[in-house]
Design a protein around this nucleic acid. Sequence first.
DNA 1: TATGAATGAGCCTTCATTCAT
DNA 2: CATGAATGAAGGCTCATTCAT
Lengths: 219, 219, 219, 219
Amino acid sequence: MPTPRSNPEPAAPRRARRKEARPGELIDAALALFVEKGFAATRVEEVAARAGVSKGTLFLYFPSKEDLFKAVVRENIAGRFPLWTAELAEFTGSSAELVRYAMHTWWEHVGMTPASGITKLVMSEAGSFPEIAAFYQQEVIIPGNDLLKRILQRGVERGEFRAMDLDYAVYSLIAPMIFLLTWKHSMAPCCPPSQQLDPITFIDTQVDLILHGMLKLPA
Amino acid sequence: MPTPRSNPEPAAPRRARRKEARPGELIDAALALFVEKGFAATRVEEVAARAGVSKGTLFLYFPSKEDLFKAVVRENIAGRFPLWTAELAEFTGSSAELVRYAMHTWWEHVGMTPASGITKLVMSEAGSFPEIAAFYQQEVIIPGNDLLKRILQRGVERGEFRAMDLDYAVYSLIAPMIFLLTWKHSMAPCCPPSQQLDPITFIDTQVDLILHGMLKLPA
Amino acid sequence: MPTPRSNPEPAAPRRARRKEARPGELIDAALALFVEKGFAATRVEEVAARAGVSKGTLFLYFPSKEDLFKAVVRENIAGRFPLWTAELAEFTGSSAELVRYAMHTWWEHVGMTPASGITKLVMSEAGSFPEIAAFYQQEVIIPGNDLLKRILQRGVERGEFRAMDLDYAVYSLIAPMIFLLTWKHSMAPCCPPSQQLDPITFIDTQVDLILHGMLKLPA
Amino acid sequence: MPTPRSNPEPAAPRRARRKEARPGELIDAALALFVEKGFAATRVEEVAARAGVSKGTLFLYFPSKEDLFKAVVRENIAGRFPLWTAELAEFTGSSAELVRYAMHTWWEHVGMTPASGITKLVMSEAGSFPEIAAFYQQEVIIPGNDLLKRILQRGVERGEFRAMDLDYAVYSLIAPMIFLLTWKHSMAPCCPPSQQLDPITFIDTQVDLILHGMLKLPA
DNA sequence: TATGAATGAGCCTTCATTCAT
DNA sequence: CATGAATGAAGGCTCATTCAT
């Protein structure tokens, strides 16, 4: 950067050609707006504008608004499962630790990020966009449930957890998280400080209680 | 029908009687449709048709679709709480039984009725209608949480449950129920039979696990 | 109409309610514009404006642009077949007279009216709107060919015309007419007066020649 | 390939040779696509792709899609007329044979080749491009009509055909052919096999009928 | 008061055309 | 010369809302 006026962003070129960066920028913009305003209420033009491109450019990368939404989901949630599956396979601690680790990891990478809005979004608009609901079901819910089920199964197989109907027991882990998301993105913004939930405390409390209920008593 | 005013209610000319009943009929129709199809996907014409009036008439009673939505929420959040509070005071069984009773009662009177859709409705549209969210918070959430808190407190005071942070513990009861509602009204309609949840099994499983985690060990 | 200033068209009321008249007005407007500019190049808003209503009103009567077009075809062409079929059944003259009568009737009711543009329209845009082409085929071409075939068959059966492959012979009647329409609506407007065709002369010439070719020689 | 410039044409580096060939290749691609899909339904990107270049390159040679269309028409209407005129002068058979020969020749060299699409193209788009229609009129229609007229005149002068209004009689030959083209390029692709026309049969039938109508009766 | 015909703003998507590289 | 990413105007259709009757 030899000269003082060398401009790293030269005059914000109107028609920059940045094929690689576009999809990511559009997905980020879409995530923010979908979460903030909902899927139906977000206009593709807004998404494009927020990503700094024109409406037409958006359709250059995503064939439709629904496909854009799917990309948002894949990028922010569905794409994480391979890593999580790998982590599960390598985990060496106790299953109780694994459950705690899983819940906190989820909070860090999804719950506390803008991606947390996606779940609430899907729930809210599933009725109006069945295709999106089905997609989410396939790409997120089923893999997510499977992952949790394998975690619980590990505990049972290692003699740490008591025998359970795993298909329903997973919801003891899922339900509090879904509730937390739903709360965060719908009621929390309207509540007085006294009614706010501290997520970490909430998660710890739920996990403790659940583990208490699951653990095989030594006696 | 001897005198004109002898019987103001039954068998009165339909037109005349309706005038008073219109808003209620419209609200009922709107509740059913909003719950079934979501707010945005419900056309006011459908609501009017279901209430047996024309589109124009609806706007005679509700200045806008949003106002109709608000009326639906206000009309249906009702006061079942006084009755439940009384039941709690008179309950003589164990606290574990009380928890089970409370959960099943809620399912019977709210969860399995159309009213269950309201909660999902409010959650979904809270972002767009902060006023409604605040209203719901005051009239439903705070009283509901209080009621549950008193139930847990009873268990702790009677030495049945171990000491807990009650403000967070209540969510162990609330979260599965909210999840169940959310699920029922958003994803379930899009899921294959293999992915469906049986509500009673679900509730029993959750309550069992929670109680397991809450119970003071006899040892 | 007691007072002098009673206005038969009172100040052109903006929102007149004329449910019965609308479809016809819209169809007329659509015919004119479709013929003038083509199907694809005509915007529904133009049609609505020409009919004196708003865009939304058009969709109140016709679910889509294609349905509007179908209505135009039904109203202006397809709907005439029943009458023509009846006329054929009652005709008592010679078959040569019948052919002449049919051709001139067609010219009067279709060829020289704006409806004549429809055929050219369909031919021009069939590639882009296969559904329209198929519709036209079903509702106009097949019935039209059938009608002509019956006319020729009558001549053969009565010993007036010689035996012919009727399936192909009908095109001796159809081709000149299609050509005439095509010409009228595409090339004619660009031609100098010296190149113009007189329709009546054209039809008479073609019919004479064809009949000459069809007639059974008395010898 | 001893010297560098010895062979400017064959096996020359593709890039270099192309420069001159580009417009022609684009026109060929455009002809094929316009004929196949219609003007509006053909995207310039398709044309470019078919010609093996990018969209931008097309606009380097043709300022607009319309200009490309004009070029297609201008390039393909060519001059087969001189040859046909010569053939007419040398023909020694009967005039009926000449008519048959002319019709079949036309089918072979125009009707059954891609060039047949141009006529339909011009007819379809004449309304939007009067300039092209006028051009077509001068370069194709007038010479074509003249040629046919001379053929008929030959028959009359040789006493083979009866006296006719030749200016209109030529259309007995033209109309079926125009109809055939129109049909082939618009309705045929949408018709079931049962509705298809066999061109040779069609032409033979029409010619036979016409000749029948034209021939001077021996009596 | 009730009706329902009429309105028109709003939105997704397409594609001819431009222009920085 | 060639490329292809970017643009933005245009159009079909929906539906909450209005208003003449």
